[in-house]
Simulated scan of single mutants.
Amino acid sequence: MLVIVYWALCIVGTTLPYTQLIPFLLEHGFDSHLFLEQLFANRISSFFGVDLIVTSIVLWVFILSEGKRLKINHLWLYLVSHLLVGVSLALPLFLLMRQRQLDACNQVTI
């Protein structure tokens, strides 16, 4: 059941951010200066921007450490999903694969 929830979160975590990014790209192209200017336009958006940067660093540390500990393959996939979409995809995707690995380990030990 948890695996289905993680899959659903992967879909939502990809779809919702792109509903905001695609119109921006269509209107402005890949203008990184404007992107950062709008991201840090005021204190509230800066709060979310800084929070996301810190969360991203924590996510990379978690993926690399937990992935190595549980011997999860293809850790690069979760890092790339983070770069292409964001935490909203990378975290549920990694948790999904982590849960599968944990379930597989529990089945072997039983």
Results as ranks from 00 to 15, higher is better:
residue 15 T to L: 15
residue 26 L to Y: 06
residue 32 S to G: 07
residue 54 V to T: 07
residue 32 S to W: 09
residue 16 L to N: 13
residue 23 P to F: 10
residue 15 T to M: 15
residue 48 F to L: 06
residue 22 I to P: 01
residue 22 I to N: 07
residue 19 T to Q: 11
residue 10 C to F: 02
residue 20 Q to A: 15
residue 30 F to E: 12
residue 15 T to V: 15
residue 38 Q to A: 04
residue 16 L to K: 13
residue 50 V to C: 07
residue 40 F to Q: 04
residue 18 Y to G: 00
residue 7 W to G: 09
residue 37 E to R: 04
residue 22 I to L: 11
residue 40 F to V: 00
residue 54 V to M: 06
residue 9 L to R: 03
residue 33 H to G: 11
residue 24 F to E: 04
residue 23 P to K: 08
residue 29 G to T: 09
residue 49 G to R: 00
residue 38 Q to S: 03
residue 43 R to Y: 14
residue 25 L to I: 11
residue 45 S to P: 00
residue 46 S to K: 02
residue 38 Q to P: 00
residue 35 F to S: 02
residue 20 Q to G: 15
residue 13 G to Q: 03
residue 51 D to N: 08
residue 53 I to T: 06
residue 23 P to L: 07
residue 47 F to N: 06
residue 39 L to P: 00
residue 16 L to C: 15
residue 36 L to N: 07
residue 36 L to Y: 12
residue 45 S to L: 01
residue 24 F to D: 04
residue 13 G to E: 02
residue 51 D to A: 04
residue 35 F to C: 05
residue 51 D to S: 03
residue 15 T to C: 15
residue 33 H to N: 13
residue 20 Q to V: 14
residue 34 L to P: 00
residue 48 F to Q: 04
residue 8 A to W: 09
residue 52 L to A: 04
residue 16 L to M: 15
residue 44 I to R: 10
residue 21 L to H: 12
residue 20 Q to E: 14
residue 50 V to K: 02
residue 19 T to F: 14
residue 11 I to L: 15
residue 26 L to F: 10
residue 26 L to Q: 13
residue 13 G to D: 06
residue 37 E to H: 07
residue 30 F to P: 00
residue 32 S to D: 10
residue 9 L to G: 04
residue 25 L to P: 05
residue 45 S to M: 02
residue 51 D to I: 01
residue 19 T to G: 07
residue 40 F to K: 03
residue 9 L to Q: 03
residue 44 I to V: 13
residue 54 V to E: 01
residue 44 I to D: 09
residue 10 C to G: 05
residue 47 F to W: 03
residue 43 R to Q: 12
residue 22 I to C: 09
residue 25 L to M: 13
residue 9 L to C: 10
residue 30 F to N: 12
residue 19 T to N: 09
residue 22 I to S: 10
residue 17 P to Y: 06
residue 48 F to S: 05
residue 7 W to D: 08
residue 36 L to M: 12
residue 15 T to P: 13
residue 47 F to R: 06
residue 11 I to F: 14
residue 33 H to Q: 14
residue 21 L to M: 15
residue 51 D to Q: 02
residue 33 H to S: 14
residue 12 V to W: 11
residue 34 L to K: 09
